[in-house]
Design a protein around this nucleic acid. Structure first.
Lengths: 159, 159
DNA sequence: GTCGCTGCAAAGTCTTTGCAGAGAG
DNA sequence: CTCTCTGCAAAGACTTTGCAGCGAC
């Protein structure tokens, strides 16, 4: 059956698990576990929003003013996490990329072009059709993303 | 019925019509019809690829070496065309935006992460579900885009 | 003729990189 | 101790803007 879901409060992976995966990943690649990397992962985990490198950096500076995390480190860590498929990036419009933790279930995006809010949803029927289409064309799917642009209910009311 | 289509050789809008629409658009906004703008529209029309501003500029320089079209004009014209919904942009990965003429039928994209080829397709069932989902959530859809990433048949064989 | 357009180059953004000191293992 | 990380600032890549002359209407 098809169903629309926008509720992701019950994360599929707990933070401890996530952190442990991260440590394994780092060890496997001879990389070091640093405070900055942990703070970035933690901030991504505790944010329900899709973050730009800049907004992520701001969040971190507010929460950890003592730790002078540089924007370059944020970029470097996001690249690392993206390469390892721990985060996913979404690029839309002119304003560059937004990142989200990839540990949640797969989902698609509703993007409000007025307020910029991104809402997530999953539809089984669409997922099934995507598999059917790629099978039919002999295309080996590794990932997919769908964005629907428009005006969210909130913005329609405010207008 | 659902159907997969990858054949867009029969353009829904002829070039003359397109050009005429463009002239109307320009006149309506008190803008001028210049050689540069025509060449850009023509090059977009005659390309089956999704073009970056840079690749579009290169194509134009090769085809019209006499006309020293600047990259700035390409950017300006693409913005103009995008604002008027005559072209659509697709941003994915790190390499910035790619543009395509929006006069064709709506379609989604299969993107080969190996060779970079973009194949188009349309699926009625997915389109219908998208409408159903947005209706259900009270979201006023203006546009949507879907990308499926993976390895195309060609690249699988070459491997 | 007028007023918008163009190419050029300079200025902005956003992102990446080089480096020397700091810190994890 | 070693070798990677980090912050900083400088460099890059991509896009936009200011300007003076050019060209559509």
């Amino acid at each position: 059956m098809s169903q629309v879901t926008t509720d992701f409060n019950d994360r599929t992976i707990e933070y401890k698990q996530l952190l442990s995966d991260f440590r394994v990943l780092l060890k496997k690649n001879n990389l070091k576990f640093t405070i900055q990397r942990e703070v970035i992962l933690d901030t991504l985990y505790n944010s329900d929003e899709h973050l730009t490198p800049e907004s992520l950096h701001n969040l971190i500076q507010n929460k950890h003013p003592d730790l002078k995390t540089g924007i370059a480190t944020v970029y470097r860590t996001l690249s690392l996490l993206e390469d390892s498929d721990m985060v996913t990036s979404l690029s839309f419009g002119a304003q560059g990329k937004k990142y989200e933790l990839g540990a949640k279930e797969h989902h698609d995006h509703l993007i409000c072009t007025k307020c910029g809010t991104i809402t997530e949803f999953v539809d089984d029927e669409i997922e099934a059709r995507q598999r059917a289409i790629t099978d039919e064309l002999g295309f080996k799917m590794s990932d997919h993303s769908m964005q629907i642009y428009g005006i969210c209910q909130q913005c329609q009311q405010n207008n």
